[in-house]
């Protein structure tokens, strides 16, 4: 690799001191019966839908609207996304994978800590579950059905396994009937799940 990160990116997994401290508190408080991890997840879940994925949605909308930006994203997603100032703190590399008529992309991990927070915010609870990861690899079509996404049988599904160093952003297909929309309106059609690959971009009439 040509990058001179002199810190800890050689390990597969790493906790910052703060991550480790929070894990330690969670362990202690759970053992003493003061918190229940599911209750904590539920509190996080109530906030997560509102906090993260708008950065990623803007990246997708720009790629739909500007072919040059889409090309850049295809060639070097890390740089293209950094040009919008959505950079991860950990210097992780990004790769954009484009859905098209032949191929649907689906991203998995994270049992560890692999999720493009800088563009997608917090990972949903289901994404962290071991069941999602293993089933997405073995039976991606079945997993997509459960998310309400039925693909035509001849469409290929590619599953991408995120690592601590390389994280993926799915660029969903642009929905039909969106020719007149500006980028802000387009971004409203891009859900978090669409950028993980467990959903599709919304049709314009479904716009929130």
């Amino acid at each position: 690799m040509s990058h001179d990160h002199d810190d800890h990116h050689h390990q597969d997994n790493h906790f910052s001191p703060m991550e480790a401290r929070v894990r330690a508190l969670e362990t202690i408080l759970t053992q003493k019966g003061l918190i229940d991890p599911q209750a904590i997840d539920a509190i996080v879940e109530t906030y997560e839908t509102k906090i993260g994925p708008r950065n990623g949605a803007r990246v997708v909308a720009k790629a739909w609207a500007e072919p040059d930006f889409a090309d850049w994203l295809r060639r070097d997603a890390t740089e293209a996304i950094a040009s919008l100032s959505y950079t991860g703190r950990q210097g992780e590399h990004m790769r954009a994978v484009f859905n098209d008529a032949q191929t649907h992309n689906l991203v998995v991990c994270t049992l560890c800590s692999c999720y493009p927070w800088s563009v997608l915010g917090l990972p949903p609870v289901w994404y962290k579950a071991p069941a999602y990861r293993s089933r997405a690899v073995i039976d991606p079509r079945g997993v997509l059905e459960e998310f309400g996404v039925t693909l035509s049988p001849d469409k290929k599904i590619r599953v991408w396994d995120s690592t601590a160093e390389l994280r993926y952003l799915v660029i969903p297909e642009r929905p039909a009937g969106t020719e007149g929309l500006d980028q802000a309106a387009l971004a409203d059609l891009v859900t978090r799940d669409a950028m993980i690959g467990t959903g599709l971009a919304l049709a314009p009439e479904a716009r929130p």
Partner: peptide
Amino acid sequence: GVASEAEQDALSHRWERAAEATPHGKPI
């Protein structure tokens, strides 16, 4: 009185070592 700072420090370090000892794709 739930856990002293020293106990919390020790457990934090153990979590750091656990993360580093866990290969990618396995639960930490």
